[in-house]
């Protein structure tokens, strides 16, 4: 690589984030669109290129760092959250992006994902959800539906799937969002919001695997479906969707229900109004339960709450210790425990 220019050229463009090596995902894979959107997002964040770190686990999506001209670490299966935490703790000045999938993040790495979300380091986590194991050639994943027939489930999966958004709510993630690989504009918007959030950002990306789970989201975001099936969340706006913006979500006791707006239907004022700053997880949980096919699928920022950031709290403790004890002096500490002198 070139070492002649030590300062990153400013302003950065998408090209600055494209490495010379070729991308080896299957043609038509949803990952290309996500990569493209990230490469579009990064130059617009005002972060020098050398301060980006992309960390991943194992799986198709986790090849991501190899396709980004930044510092990157392709780690081991499920463990990316730990390594990303180490990077961020070591140098809070870095912009850390963690790439994972439904198998990597929610199966083998479920433990670490839980803990990185609850600790709240300022890391952006993108979970590519294609509801299948691609790199190992098509076994069912923890987000696959019951009954899914794969090579490892010839009679259909009997595992109840995990809902990634609900998982993130359970772990009390401070920022939770969802976007789709077919909507570059929405992806860029969502990634920017994730970057802007101080604390951990969890973004589920509905992503298509053309080989092993083709059209998994077709009924949600396919050309013919999306207008009626996607609910775009907007801060302060009512939960309205549909081609004619004539449908909404209203609360009936503790259950969400779909209502039609208009003369014979409900009024806009009856609808739930989106508030990503709502601290009560009941509301976020309610959103997470809007699941296809009974409901439209919400995309956008579900939640953005302020919570203490892990690496800031860690540094604050160091500062407080140095304030009260002074900078450590090892020679003094060695003697401190009680010593004696032999003449």
């Amino acid at each position: 690589m070139s070492t002649e220019t030590l300062e990153s050229p400013q302003p950065l463009t998408k090209k600055d984030f494209v490495p010379p090596n070729e991308v080896r995902w299957c043609p038509g894979c949803g990952d290309y669109a996500i990569l493209n959107s990230i490469q579009k997002t990064f130059p617009e964040l005002g972060v020098p290129r050398e301060k980006f770190v992309v960390v991943s686990g194992i799986g198709c999506s986790s090849r991501f760092p190899y396709y980004m001209q930044t510092y990157g670490f392709h780690t081991i299966h499920g463990r990316a959250p730990t390594l990303a935490t180490g990077v961020k703790v070591a140098n809070p000045d870095l912009s850390v992006w963690m790439i994972t999938g439904d198998g990597d993040g929610l199966s083998i790495g479920g433990n670490h994902l839980l803990h990185v979300l609850r600790r709240n380091p300022n890391i952006n986590i993108l979970l590519f959800n294609n509801r299948v194991y691609g790199l190992t050639k098509g076994q069912y994943s923890p987000t696959s539906d019951v009954g899914m027939k794969t090579k490892s489930t010839p009679m259909g999966s009997i595992d109840h799937p995990v809902n990634p958004i609900q998982f993130a709510i359970g772990a009390e993630a401070s920022f939770i969002a969802r976007t789709v690989d077919t909507d570059p504009k929405h992806m860029v918007e969502t990634f920017k919001a994730a970057h802007a959030h101080k604390g951990v950002s969890f973004v589920e990306i509905l992503q298509n695997c053309v080989i092993y789970n083709k059209d998994v989201w077709e009924d949600v975001y396919g050309r013919d479906a999306r207008a009626e099936q996607i609910l775009y969340l907007a801060d302060g706006q009512p939960l309205i969707y549909g081609k004619d913006k004539d449908k909404g979500i209203r609360l009936n006791n503790l259950d969400p229900e779909i209502v039609t707006l208009g003369e014979s239907g409900a009024s806009e004022g009856e609808l739930l109004q989106h508030n990503p700053k709502e601290a009560n997880s009941l509301y976020t949980t309610l959103l997470s339960q809007l699941v296809h096919p009974q409901f439209p699928t919400p995309v956008g920022v579900f939640r953005a709450l302020e919570r203490p950031v892990y690496e800031d709290s860690l540094q604050a403790q160091i500062d407080a210790a140095q304030e009260s004890k002074g900078q450590g002096d090892l020679q003094t500490s060695l003697v401190g425990g009680g010593s004696w002198v032999v003449e």
Binding site: R49, K51, P65, H74, L94
Partner: peptide
């Protein structure tokens, strides 16, 4: 390491 301009690179397993 990250933060050093011009040396962006990827490592992995």
């Amino acid at each position: 390491f990250p933060g050093m301009p011009g040396y962006e690179h990827r490592v992995g397993g």
